[in-house]
Each structure stands twice: as C-alpha cells, then as structure tokens.
Design a protein around this nucleic acid. Sequence first.
DNA 1: ATTAGCACTCTCACGTTGAGAGTGCTAATT
DNA 2: AATTAGCACTCTCAACGTGAGAGTGCTAAT
Lengths: 345, 345
Amino acid sequence: MTKELTERQKLLLSLIIHEHTRTAQPVGSKSIVNQFGLNLSSATIRNELATLTELGYLRQPHTSAGRVPTEEGYRYFVSNLVQQTNLPATTRNTISHQFYQAPQGLVQWLRLAASVLANHSQAASLVTAPHTTRATFKHIELLSTRATQVLLVLVLGGGEIRQRILSLDESVSQENLSELSAHINGLCQNYSADDLKSRHEQLSPLGLIVLDTIIEEMRLSSTLVTGEVYLDGLTNVLTEPEFAQSELARSPMRLLEERTLLNDLISRTIMTEEVGGVQVLIGGEGTWDELRDCSVILTRYGIPDQLTGAIGVLGPMRMPYGHTISTVRFMAGLLSDLVSEHLVE
Amino acid sequence: MTKELTERQKLLLSLIIHEHTRTAQPVGSKSIVNQFGLNLSSATIRNELATLTELGYLRQPHTSAGRVPTEEGYRYFVSNLVQQTNLPATTRNTISHQFYQAPQGLVQWLRLAASVLANHSQAASLVTAPHTTRATFKHIELLSTRATQVLLVLVLGGGEIRQRILSLDESVSQENLSELSAHINGLCQNYSADDLKSRHEQLSPLGLIVLDTIIEEMRLSSTLVTGEVYLDGLTNVLTEPEFAQSELARSPMRLLEERTLLNDLISRTIMTEEVGGVQVLIGGEGTWDELRDCSVILTRYGIPDQLTGAIGVLGPMRMPYGHTISTVRFMAGLLSDLVSEHLVE
DNA sequence: ATTAGCACTCTCACGTTGAGAGTGCTAATT
DNA sequence: AATTAGCACTCTCAACGTGAGAGTGCTAAT
C-alpha cells in the first residue's frame, strides 16, 4: 500500500501540501521552483509530479491546472512526513496560565479548552466531558421540590454529577428523603452499576425506585460520550475559502450540531485509541459523507481506564497538520493534568 | 411616526411581505395582480407602491426591480398587521407529547425545546436555563475527591445545581466535611446571598471558605443569563438564500457562538419584558451590527419573579413572523408549564 | 380615482474572446 | 540515465458585448 517514494518525491509532496495549505490554490511546477529555489528546472518537477499524480497522491482539478493533494496524499503526508513542532514555550505558558487563573471548575475548564483550541487551530474545536467507563457510585442527595416531586442529585466517581426529577405517586417528607439517601449512601459506596443491582435488600418501595433511577443514570453515563460536548470556533470553518458557498459548509456544521452524528464520530474514531495517540481522520474515510472536504483530529485525554474524555478539532482538509496535531496534543496533556490533579481520588 | 395607512396600502404591504417571504425575490406590481387576483390594474398598484416606498416601508434594490420590504416595513407589519395564527391542535399535541414522553430532567427538556423550536421555525433557536433572580440556598454537599480537593455541590431554590472544586491547604476527612455541610445546611436554609453574609457565626475557617464560595456562586447565578444556553438549528440559517455567501452568514453565527454577545443580546432584549410578551428585534435595531439581515424573536418563560428563562429564535429578516411568533409563544408556554409543575416548591 | 400605453432603465444569462497559467512531450544536453 | 529547453496544446477566468425580460414612472384617456 504505502509505495516507497524517493526523497525528492517526499520533499515535493511536502512542499505542495505546504504551499496549498497556505494559498488554497492548485500549485504548479513553476511556482514551486520560484518559491523554494530548488536546483531543478520546472520540467524535472513536472515529471516527478506526473508520477506522484499516477500514484494517487496528487490530483489536477482540470487538465492544465496545478496540482492539489488528494486524500491519499494527505494521509501519506500525515503518516510519514509531518513533523510535529512542539508549541513554543511562550505559547504553552500563556495557555497554561489561563487555566490556572480561571475559576476552578470542570465546566469552565472544558469551555476554556474548547475556546483556546479553536483560536489556536483556527478550526472548530470539540471537547467532551471526561467520564468513567466504569462509573462508581459516590453519593446521592434527595431533595423535595414540591409535594410529589423529588430532585435526585447523583455524584459519580470522578466528580461527575447527574440530576433527575422523580415524580412520585404520593408526597414524601424531606426527613424521610434524607433518611433514605443516608441509607443508600451507606449501602452503595463505590459500587458499580452492576453491583448495585444486588443491593436492594431492606429498601422501601420508594428506595427501589431511587435505586433503579441511579442504576439507569450510571448506565447512561457509561456510554463513551455522555452529557455535553463543548464546541467552539464553528465560524472558523465558515472563514475557509473552500466553504465560501454556504452549502458546502452546511454538512460539516450539521455534523457538529447533530448530537447523534457527533457522538458516533467521536466514539468510532476514538474507541480504539489509547490516551496519547492522536487520531487523524482525513476526508471522512468513506464513512462520513459530510466530511468530504474536512479533516478531524481527535485524541483522548484523562487517566486511562479511570476518567477519560475526547478533545480535537474539525477543519478543512487543507490544514496545517503539524501545528494542529501539536496543539491538540498539548491541550490534551493540559486537560489530563487538570483532571488528574483535581478530579481523581 | 406610525403614519396611518389606508386599508389598501396595509393589504399591499402584507401581500408583498408574504410573497417576498415565500420567494426571497423582489416582488413587482404585476406579479401581485397575478398571484392574488385583485380587482385592480398593475398601474394602480404601482402608484400605491410608490407612496409606500416614499414612506420608507418598501425599497427597490435597483431602479427597475420589484419592491422589497424595509426594516421599517417589517416593523409596521409586525406591530399592526401580523395575525397570530394559533398552531393547529394536532401540532400542539404532537409537541406536548414529546415532552411528556421524554425522560424527565431540565436539561433534556431545554435541549428538546431548542430542537423542536428550531425544526418548526426553520431558524436557529436558543433557550436559556431558567433561574431565580433572587437565588435562595437550598442544600450543599461536600465531597472529598483526593487529599486536599473538595467537590462542592450547591443546590439552589429552583433545583438549579452548581458545582465547584475547592483546593484546600490541608487535607480534611470526609467525616469533617459531612459534619460541616450538615451544619451549613441547617444554618442557611432558604436564605438569599445577601442574607448569607451575616451567617458566619460559629464557623470554622474552612466553613468560611465554603460560605464565601457559596455566596459567590449564588451571585454568579443571579445574572440574567447563567450557565448554558441551548442552541439548535444553526445550520438552518445557512440554508437561507440571503446567506449563501458564507461571509454574510458568519456574523449572525458568530453572535450565537460568542457567549458574551449572546448574553448581551438576551439580557438587553428581554430585560424589560414580562413573561408572555414576545419581543421582536428586527435587523439589529442599530445596536447589533451582526444582525443587519436578521430578526430575533425572544420571550420569557417560567414563573415571574421566581424562576424564569428566555426562549426564542434567530432567523433571516425575511421570516414568516406570524407563524414564528406563535411557535415561540407556544413553546414558552409549554416550558412555563413544565417549570411550574416540576421545579417550583 | 383608475387604467392603458409607452418609453425607459436595469439586471441577468449567454456567448465570445484573449491573456495567462500550466501541462505533456520531444529532442537536445550533461 | 537524468535533466532541461522549447513548444504546442488545453483549460480557466475575467472582460466585454448583447438582447431578452421584468419592472418602473409618467401621461393621457376613461
């Protein structure tokens, strides 16, 4: 599959991608020579380009236009040629500072992460809240709001909070509720959803309802993407020239908007990957039609097997991969640190 | 200001707005006669159109094109001519059902409301979580996550939940924390932020930190727009022909994305208005440049002075006002019912 | 007050055209 | 064998011209 390229071909592929990323235009043999002052004539370049085109790494929009990288071209580039530039120390510090200055709180951090990432990548960013694959019970609180309504607040292992309103058949006093929650708190400490099922001894009918609700919420929380997905920089996508006609921009935007599509994308892309590895999805890879002209860069953050989330960007396929991958990786590291410092027991 | 129009002029204004809403094209005298079969000649219509143009209600894109409504025209229409069609009973039922079937929970309801509203209005929808202008303390829970980290969960009057991570100088046991929270819970029941300041008797240093945090969170929660704003249907805006060039679509989208802008818009628009009144903001009204070609329809929902939020849509100025206003009003009513049934004590 | 008629204006879709950029191929050069 | 100069060829794109069509305002008649 990965045909060996000569060094010169690799160089040319890199140059074309670099140039096309900058200008959004097809790039021709002559302009390569001018731009980069190689010791070669345009004719030689043309020959090389012809073979790269045959190999499927380049493409001509029409017979006599310059070359444009294909999806294959980008893939080869990302797999073999891209060089990860570490972000400059000053940038890294600026970003870190923002986090340690900001008010402490998971939601604020995630929102900030999305915003920073969107700015630095000039693309749309997405961040999911971290969650435990194996949720453990930590604490509940039952609060009566009005006669037959009860607000159930459930705290899970990593500090994840879920709430739910219960409608009862008859009214229950706050004292009874407090008693019940104390009872359940004692009974269920640190259990997982599966273990909880066997804990219904000595529980009142109301207690059983509560327990079932708890189990249900814990199950819900165990799907990979749970709760909010924090998005930012959607309009960055609209800025790119390839999405000048709004019709083209609509499909990637729709994907970000539709919860189900987005969840699907995140789970399938990230599923296999360990924390640390960055996934690059170029042009939908045959599965996501909406992403024909887009690339998605995604990675996990958090503590493996304990509390992990996903963070990444969606941008045009014509994207500065080196820089973007570095940025995503750095942000993931930052969030991992925050999570392990503040949220894990 | 509001010059009196003859009945015929009103009719013509309505017809033009109706037709232009449908086609997104300038509408000419002839096409009015054809479409609506008035007993008038096109020449008569032209005379009327000329006066309407002089009055500032209509505008010609160029000398010999049809007429297009101006902002003024839309304002006059909305103030004097629009007829609120109640949504058909079947639609109303379908929507209600969705809510009573859906899993109970504020977040789900708000999300669903945004989604339904976006679909029925074919515009971008926005829904803020309801909150109390005068937040009252209901309950806290303190949970130790790791040595010196404490998770503070705060429940406010209307069931609003806020969470915060506290970093302490020294570690505190969970028993001490439980004791402290029980103490504070007893001490502060139903107090407002201002009242809480005077409750620091008999509190340990840690207790004071917690109390300050509580007060701060309650203050935060008292700004009109707090926490999440649920958006949906952003891509509906991209569909409209007037936003075919993505550049034009970018500004309204940006406004929806920038938290600060959005909050500003919501608070300033809604501030004055009572629950029940629907605010229509046409073309930015000189204040929001980003909305030059857009209209915003916003209203409050909830229980006045107790627990209110905002719900509305943002769409192109060329919008079926009658239908959209009805829809927004209906959704607001629905949410009000849900809130008063489930969230108010 | 309304209308028929007409001259006028302006846009838009369509076709033409020429410059420019880029290509592939061939034959010559290193 | 690799590289290069040269050249004919292709295709896009912006510029221009043109004519049909839609709509207007005005005037004179009803």
